[in-house]
Amino acid sequence: MNRKVIWVLFLLLFMFHQDFWWWDDTSLILGFLPIGLAYHAAFSLSCALLGWLAIKYAWPHKLQQFAEENTSGEG
């Protein structure tokens, strides 16, 4: 997995945010949770998962190294 895959996942997740499936559905999960809200709560968890994947496979190591070399302090 590399940065391109992370970008594709990001765009896929963005597309899945514009959900058509439960736009008009008012049914409840477990008798209280509207299906549209459950979908978007799952979406939030997917964002956290994508964040974890991005950190694992697309972490900017070079940038981190660059920042932690001697600082110039030009301000």
Partner: peptide, 16 residues
Amino acid sequence: IGTYGLMASISGLVHA
């Protein structure tokens, strides 16, 4: 409930 998708879940993706 569309409020959550409108303001919260998209913020989770974009902010992160």
